[in-house]
Simulated scan of single mutants.
Amino acid sequence: MSTGPLPGTARITRQRTHLIEMLARSEGFRSAQRLYADLRDGGVSIGLTTVYRILQALVEAGDVDVMRLPSGEQLFRRCSRTHHHHLICRHCARTVEITGPAVESWTHWVADRHGYTDVNHTLEIMGTCAACSPC
């Protein structure tokens, strides 16, 4: 996966480029606060408000996935641009993109059964990855 600027994004700034590169190196979803702290620790001069603004633009452009925790906190991850779902470790946040026709078929079946049209969906499967599992 390229770490350069993403197609379809707004003005490319140094801060935006650093944030995109950090997201590309990340294996799991990360909070805006964590991304901000990591950027600052890496010597990037950036404000937390700027991190939020860039992330929102990337989400709106479809370049970054966002997941909302039950607490309301949002987590972000740069993902592929094709439709997919996530398998997420609840301990370390390692994330694997998954696809499958069964989920798509089930979604359309449920929607049809209840008379819904123009349906979209997201699916996050939470578990414990092999590295975090007790031996």
Rank of each mutant, 00 (worst) to 15 (best):
E104G: 05
T50F: 03
Y116V: 10
M67A: 13
H83V: 15
V66P: 00
D63A: 12
A111R: 05
T17Q: 11
P5R: 00
L35R: 12
H83I: 14
H86P: 08
T99W: 03
I98M: 15
L87S: 07
C79L: 06
T99N: 03
D38H: 14
S105W: 01
A57I: 12
A131G: 00
T13A: 04
T3P: 02
V59H: 05
L55A: 04
W106M: 12
A111D: 11
Y116D: 13
I12R: 02
R40H: 04
F76P: 05
M1P: 00
D38I: 15
W106C: 05
A24L: 01
T13R: 01
V59C: 09
C79A: 15
H84S: 01
C79W: 00
P70I: 11
T128C: 14
I46E: 06
G100H: 07
S133R: 14
A32D: 10
G62C: 11
E21Y: 00
H108I: 06
S2L: 08
E27C: 02
R78W: 06
H114K: 02
A93D: 10
E60M: 06
L19C: 04
S2V: 07
G47L: 13
S71F: 10
P70D: 15
T49G: 12
Y52D: 13
H84C: 03
G47D: 14
A10Q: 09
R53E: 12
T9H: 05
I98N: 08
L39V: 07
V59W: 07
H91S: 10
P70S: 15
Q56W: 06
T107R: 12
M67C: 07
I88C: 10
T49R: 08
E27M: 00
G43K: 01
Q56T: 11
G100R: 08
T99G: 07
R90V: 15
G115I: 05
T3Q: 04
E27Y: 06
V110Q: 04
Q56N: 09
S105Q: 12
T122R: 08
Q56L: 09
T95A: 09
H114C: 09
Y116F: 13
E60P: 03
G8I: 03
D41K: 14
T122N: 10
I54T: 08
T107I: 08
V59S: 04
D118H: 10
